[in-house]
Design a binder for these strands. Structure first.
Ligand code: ZN
Ligand code: ZN
Ligand code: ZN
Ligand code: ZN
Lengths: 172, 172
DNA sequence: CTCGCAAAAGTTATTTCATTGCAAAAACCT
DNA sequence: AGGTTTTTGCAATGAAATAACTTTTGCGAG
């Protein structure tokens, strides 16, 4: 089944930065500022822990498990308990700032503001670990039609594709 | 996150048979016969354990966790270890006879022979626990286009939608 | 400022899901 | 039967997620 958290980290380390991560620092800074704005607007608090979790997700731009996050947050402070990470993740997901990749037991920051009625697919590269978030009106429409035809009222959509991203194929 | 195995079972018990399960016995019998044929054709063995797991999935027609299955197989024999169930599930999934619902940590029998290049969506009702397996050429095409546009070579597709099925809305 | 409340984080333990490693048994093939 | 491969048994462990309860923190009302 899904790669474990430890394997993910090792894989990432062995790969170094990939094209998915380029210029991630600047994007992360902007995204973080926007997240603060969103939280203010929603009247909720982006506490230090929540902020740090989100920041880690942004700068990594790869799926991280809750225990990965706990580890990543460790330096410069004491070890954070898993439950704390999960609570932060729950918060971030509620605010549409993060997303759970069910097929990986991992979490990732959301760049495009979760326009919740849109169908969003996550393309997960098995080679470099990068994740692309893609939507298209065609996809949204097709899903809507399909669900409509079945009379199914959707609550949560999980669209995850694993495989090989474009630049990992080139570099094969 | 996802409903636990125990909750699933309790939910099922509280609901009795729902429309998703009607005439499941006959369908299950036919599907099981077909599964035997498939295994013969593939030159692999549908052993008693594998067969029993598949049968349980067919007759239940609801997502079951590995430990649920271990429990379900218990009567009339000794307790089966989780690993054994997982091995049986791995086999069934390899043969395209079962499917893992990543969003539920649960497994379900596949009725339509997994024509592996088709995009199949699973509609999971949060009310009755029933799962419908749907495909459409439109969905397959849309996904193919989307992946093509991204230059992404797909290996595994996870399309799972949770919500409320048609008859659970009627009965609300 | 201090009291009181509610939200957040800490602590400890437990549950649920999945895998590893090795031994025994069964099925298959000469 | 003898040797090989596949399957199952068994015990322990790892990994992901949650539970129950306490303490701390942020913040407004008095
Ligand atoms: Zn990459
Ligand atoms: Zn890649
Ligand atoms: Zn139903
Ligand atoms: Zn239903």
């Amino acid at each position: 089944m899904a790669r474990t958290a430890a394997e993910r980290l090792q894989h990432e380390a062995s790969q170094g930065s990939c094209a998915h991560a380029v210029r991630q620092e600047e994007k992360a800074a902007r995204a973080l500022a926007q997240a603060e704005a969103i939280c203010r607007a929603h009247g909720v608090r982006l506490t230090p822990i929540r902020r740090k979790v989100l920041e880690t997700l942004y700068t990594t731009h790869k799926p991280l498990g809750a225990y990965d996050l706990a580890e990543a947050l460790e330096p410069g402070g004491r070890r954070i308990a898993p439950i704390t990470v999960y609570r932060a993740l729950d918060f971030l997901i509620e605010q549409g700032l993060a997303h759970r990749l069910a097929s990986q037991n991992a979490y990732i920051a959301t760049f495009q503001g979760d326009s919740s009625h849109e169908a969003t697919a996550f393309l997960i590269c098995e080679e470099c670990g990068g994740v692309d978030e893609v939507t298209s009106s065609a996809l949204t429409e097709t899903m809507a039609n399909l669900l409509n035809a079945e009379g199914f009222r959707a609550h949560t959509k999980v669209l995850e594709v694993t495989g090989r991203c474009a630049h990992c194929q080139d570099a094969h």
